[in-house]
């Protein structure tokens, strides 16, 4: 199954741990997982757990505009993407869940 996850909250929100846990479990169960980070959730790109998810094969993209607005630097392995990428995830997955 293809799973898409949208996260919009900043790292101190409990949503972050939920998204990490769901992504990890889904990937370990053999599912394809794509995560899109926008609004304050782009700060999650710096978390080591997200780097670990990338190593496991989870695809992670951020809204480049939100990253630029927050003067953040790029993180290797994370696509410096756009709202088009979020649209592609929503359009292509079997299940899409959002955490906001």
């Amino acid at each position: 199954m293809k799973l898409g996850i949208l996260l919009t909250t900043s790292p101190e929100n409990e949503n972050t741990n939920t998204v990490i846990a769901i992504s990890r479990a889904a990937k370990e169960a053999g599912h394809e997982v794509s995560v899109f980070l926008m609004y304050d959730s782009v700060y999650n790109a710096y978390k080591k757990e997200f780097a670990e998810l990338i190593d496991k094969g989870v695809s992670i993209a951020v809204c480049a505009l939100n990253v630029e607005q927050r003067k953040m630097s790029r993180v290797p392995g994370i696509l410096f993407g756009s709202q088009y990428d979020n649209a592609c995830i929503a359009s292509n997955v079997d299940r899409f869940i959002s955490f906001g």
Partner: peptide
């Protein structure tokens, strides 16, 4: 803004 983007597919 996200809603506008979601129309792209």
């Amino acid at each position: 803004r996200m809603s506008v983007g979601l129309t792209l597919r």
